[in-house]
Nucleic acid binder design. Sequence first.
DNA 1: ATGGTAGCGGAGCTA
Length: 265
Amino acid sequence: MRIATWNVNSLKVRLPRVEEWIDYAQPDVLCLQETKLADSAFPGLAFEALGYEAAHHGEGRWNGVAVLSRVGLTDVVDGFDDDDEPDPQARLLWATCGGVRVASVYVPNGRALDDDHYAYKLDWLARLRRNLERAHDPAEPLVVAGDWNIAPADDDVWDPAAFEGATHVSPAEREALGALVDWGLHDSFRRCHDEGGLFSWWDYRAGNFHKKKGMRIDLLMASTPVADAVTFALIDRQARKGSQPSDHAPVLIDVDLPAREGADR
DNA sequence: ATGGTAGCGGAGCTA
């Protein structure tokens, strides 16, 4: 099973690139972030034509997440799977696809360490951890895939010195991600690649993509049954090139999961 | 020189 994640930065603008990418990358499950669409504007028919079921959780101008699947899509939950107040921002969507519990996540940016949005980011990550503890078991096949807005380690950014005192690399954010690792999630891309300098996001400005000034912030955080089954992982830099690219590249993993009893396919 | 670009929406905010 091929599972992918891509922050598309407006699905309205990016739909042709997404259709093109699906055609050649052939993901079984694709998590999208920053669709920037209301649910009523989600192009479900375009994906149906490609053989995918889809669930979308949007709010309009900002945020918005989706899960596309050609291996089944059931038990959809918008936002946190808990009993607390619903998140007013559309940043999380759960679905079960081909026997794997999948979440598409768009973690708050944080902006700066002294910004209220940074505290919100840490609170949001803590709530995600509580959600996992409450509703899930790390022994089950599970992937939380998306734009985490966190570079897990210094070799996930082009120049650690340039990020001194900045968000995305702060100890508190990395500890919040570490709490999810402690619960039982693994940075599945790292099962196939241990070298630094592999990025999934590059600022549109100042030619940063061509200067190789990026960060690896798009992560497929997988439970042990999935992480142990990873056979291949890739960041598709080609998708960051060409006409009207997103500022993020898609990231994918291939997992060789044991056949399920009673599976559709 | 604190720059630069993209998207949304139609000015300023967000990233």
